[in-house]
Design a protein around this nucleic acid. Structure first.
Lengths: 194, 194
DNA sequence: TCGTTCATTGAATATGTATTCAATATACAA
DNA sequence: TTGTATATTGAATACATATTCAATGAACGA
C-alpha cells in the first residue's frame, strides 16, 4: 500500500470516528483529544490531516451532501419514472432503513446533517449543508403521485417537507436508540395518502 | 410592584431571551454577552440571576418539562376518555400548531427540548429533559384507538415514537422557517390510521 | 548507505469566553 | 434621614481547549 493510500485510509478513519463522536456527544462536547484518543493517534497529528476541528466537520458535511445527491440522481432515482410514486417511496424508505441498520454511519450522517442544518454548529458547515435539497426532489415525485391519484391533495412542497421531517425525526430517534425497530415504511408514506 | 416581582420579571425576560437565542444560534454559539446585550443588561448581572450558563439552560429545560407534563395531565388530557382517539389527536395537533403560531416561544421550547434530548448540550440539561415522556402517554392513547378500531395494528410504543418523531421534525422545520404553513393535522395522524 | 521527506509525538502556547469581583448606585425599612 | 440590602456595572481573572511547534522516528528513493 502506497504512502498516499495509507494517508487516505487514516483520513477516513478520522472522519468516521469524528462522525460517531459528534453524533453521540455533540460537536462541542467532542474535544479534539477525544477524537485523537478514539482513532487512536496523538492530538498534534490530527492537524496533519485536518487543519482544524471545523474543517473536519465541514468535510463530513460535504460527504453527507454527496451522499444525498447520489440518492436523488443514482440508478434508484431513475426507477422513479417507471413505478407508481407511492411504491417508489415505500421502497426507498425500506432500503434506507435496512441499509442504515447495516451501516450505522448512515444514521449518524443523517443525524449530523440534521443538526448542522438547524444550527448549533459553526456557520461554515451550515452553508455547506444548505447545498442539499431533498425537498424539491420529493416534491416532484409527490406531484407525480397526485396526478396518478395515489397521493392526497395539498401543496407538494409542504407535503414533501412533512415527509422529510418525519423521516428525519425517525432516523434521529433510531440513532439515539440502536435497539429501536424500524417502522413500517407504509406508516410514513401514509402521510401522503388520502 | 414589589422588588421580588421585579426580579421575577427580569428572570423571565432572561429566560425568554436565552431561549430565542439558543434556538436561533445554538447553545454554544450563544455567548453570555449575547444574551446580556439582548435583554439588555450587563454581563455581570446575568450571574446575579443565574449562577451559570448551564443552570440557565437547565431552568429552561425544567420549564419545558413542566409544560409537557401539563399537556398530558391538564383538562385537555381529561377529554381523552370521552372522544375517539383519532379525533383527540387531530384536535391536539390543531391546538398545538395554532398556539405555537401565536406564541413562538412554544416552538422554540419544542426545538430546544429536542436538541437537548439528543445531545449536543451539557449532560445536566439532558438528564433534566429525560424526565418528560410523551411517548408513553400517547402509546396508551394509541392502544385505546386500536381497540376502537380507528388505528392500525402495530406496537403502540413504536407507533407513538413515530408519531412524536414526526411532530418534532415538523415543529423544528416550522421553527426554522417562520413562513412555513402548518400542515393539516390529518396528514400526521394518518401515520396511525389503517 | 545516505539524505530527504513525511509521520508522529506531547508539551507549550494562544485564544475565546464564562465567571468573579470590587466599586457604585438605587431602593427600602426603621 | 440613615443604614442596610439589593441591583448594577464593566474590567480583571481563570480556565478550558484548539492549535502550534520543536524534536524524533520511520520510510523511501537514489
Amino acid at each position: 500500500m502506497t504512502r498516499k493510500e495509507q494517508k487516505e485510509e487514516r483520513r477516513k478513519a478520522i472522519l468516521m470516528t469524528a462522525l460517531t463522536l459528534f453524533v453521540e456527544k455533540g460537536y462541542y462536547d467532542t474535544k479534539i483529544t477525544d477524537i485523537a484518543a478514539a482513532v487512536p493517534m496523538s492530538t498534534g497529528l490530527m492537524f496533519h490531516y485536518f487543519e482544524s476541528k471545523e474543517v473536519l466537520l465541514t468535510e463530513l458535511v460535504k460527504m453527507g451532501v454527496e451522499g444525498t445527491k447520489a440518492l436523488s440522481s443514482g440508478p434508484a432515482a431513475q426507477a422513479m419514472a417507471d413505478i407508481p410514486a407511492d411504491q417508489y417511496l415505500k421502497g426507498f424508505l425500506q432500503q434506507l432503513f435496512s441499509y442504515a441498520k447495516e451501516q450505522p454511519w448512515v444514521f449518524n450522517m443523517f443525524v449530523l446533517m440534521g443538526q448542522v442544518r438547524r444550527s448549533g454548529m459553526p456557520e461554515e458547515a451550515r452553508k455547506e449543508a444548505a447545498a442539499v435539497n431533498s425537498i424539491d426532489f420529493t416534491a416532484t415525485l409527490i406531484a407525480k403521485g397526485q396526478k396518478e391519484g395515489v397521493f392526497r391533495a395539498g401543496d407538494p412542497i409542504l407535503l414533501s417537507r412533512c415527509f422529510w421531517a418525519s423521516v428525519q425525526g425517525i432516523m434521529e430517534e433510531m440513532a439515539m436508540d440502536k435497539e429501536m425497530e424500524a417502522p413500517d415504511p407504509r406508516w410514513i408514506v401514509s402521510i401522503l395518502i388520502p
